[in-house]
């Protein structure tokens, strides 16, 4: 298993998580109630929507894009593409920044933690680390070829 394969797998898992939370947000899955310190409080807070779109749906978009890039990166054509590595790294970096903002809101504004959101945060962090390693390796490989 290469790093890009791991990225694709994690993205797929994240995609399902995002779809689950989106369905939850729209009431398709489960019924929401207000209980102490739970996902419901986070999911129903005013911060669960960003630019008119549920945060979970933004997550779906993020993971779809990441999945597409990771799988494209497995194709011979893009195997050595440093541009693709950079795109993945930038996307993952943006994911980390956005997730950090959401975690900040959970901790200091909403005062509640959503375990699904924390799971997604963990995945985004792992994706970023993998993307960073992948980018460094393509750079190294390019340098070797250039030499």
């Amino acid at each position: 298993m290469t790093k890009r394969m791991w990225m694709a797998l994690i993205s797929l898992a994240g995609l399902f998580l995002g779809v689950y939370l989106t369905m939850y947000k729209f009431g398709i899955i489960g019924s929401l109630a207000c209980n102490v310190g739970s996902c419901e409080q986070v999911q129903t807070s005013r911060w669960s929507v960003f630019l008119g779109v549920p945060v979970a749906t933004w997550g779906v978009g993020f993971y779809v894009l990441m999945l597409v890039l990771a799988i494209a990166g497995l194709q011979p054509r893009f195997m050595d593409s440093r541009r693709l590595s950079l795109a993945v790294l930038l996307l993952a970096g943006w994911g980390v920044v956005f997730t950090a903002w959401l975690n900040y809101l959970e901790a200091f504004v909403i005062h509640a933690w959503c375990e699904w959101c924390l799971g997604s945060a963990g995945m985004v962090l792992v994706l970023f680390v993998l993307a960073l390693m992948d980018w460094r390796e393509t750079k190294q490989a390019d340098d070797e070829v250039a030499a």
Binding site: L9, L12, A13, L15, V19, I29, G30
Partner: peptide, 21 residues
Amino acid sequence: IAIGGIAALTYASSKSNEIVN
């Protein structure tokens, strides 16, 4: 994973109309 995920989401949504609590 894809099949498992789709199955899990389908199962979860099919249970949504139940009164569980």
